[in-house]
Amino acid sequence: MTSLALTTDETRGARIVVSIQGDLDMHAAGDLHNEAGDLLTTHPLMIMDLSGITFCDSSGYNALLRLRRRAGEAGGQLVLAAPPPTVSRLLALTGAEEVFDVYSSRAEALAAHPARDVA
């Protein structure tokens, strides 16, 4: 049983905003990768609100990196918003804050990546 929940908060054009809550660990990483990966096929710009993450291990970190690659392969991007201090520290220690667009709040991420309606 996974201890992580992914919720779709908004979809508009190519952009999707999702929230994740719970533990991003080895038990949840595969489910997150599959669920979010499926969403990336129709919405290649994903803003992921991490404020609800209570724990993140190396499996969870790996899932985020794999999703970033998958978004890039789809011509899109994975944007991280509101990471809790432990996740921010993990991103800083590994240098991943240089490869992800990371914003301290969802509002900042939304402002930096506005939705564009598909024509």
Rank of each mutant, 00 (worst) to 15 (best):
E97V: 00
T2F: 07
G60M: 06
A28N: 02
T94F: 06
A119F: 10
G76L: 13
L50W: 06
R66P: 01
L4Q: 09
A63R: 06
G95E: 10
M46D: 05
S59E: 07
N34V: 12
I53N: 02
R68K: 15
D49E: 07
A119W: 14
V79R: 09
S104A: 14
S88P: 00
T11R: 15
I47W: 13
D38C: 02
R69I: 13
E10F: 11
A96E: 07
S104W: 01
T94I: 05
S59C: 08
D57P: 09
E73L: 10
D117L: 15
D117G: 13
A14C: 00
M46L: 15
R106E: 02
E98V: 05
A119S: 13
R116G: 10
G22F: 01
S104H: 09
A109Y: 06
I16F: 00
A36I: 13
V17T: 12
A115D: 08
L110Q: 13
L110M: 14
G30C: 04
H113G: 07
L67N: 02
G95D: 10
V99F: 09
T41A: 12
V18Q: 15
P44I: 03
A111S: 14
Q77M: 08
V99H: 07
G95N: 08
T11W: 02
R15H: 01
V17L: 13
T42C: 04
E97F: 00
A96P: 02
D49T: 07
R12S: 12
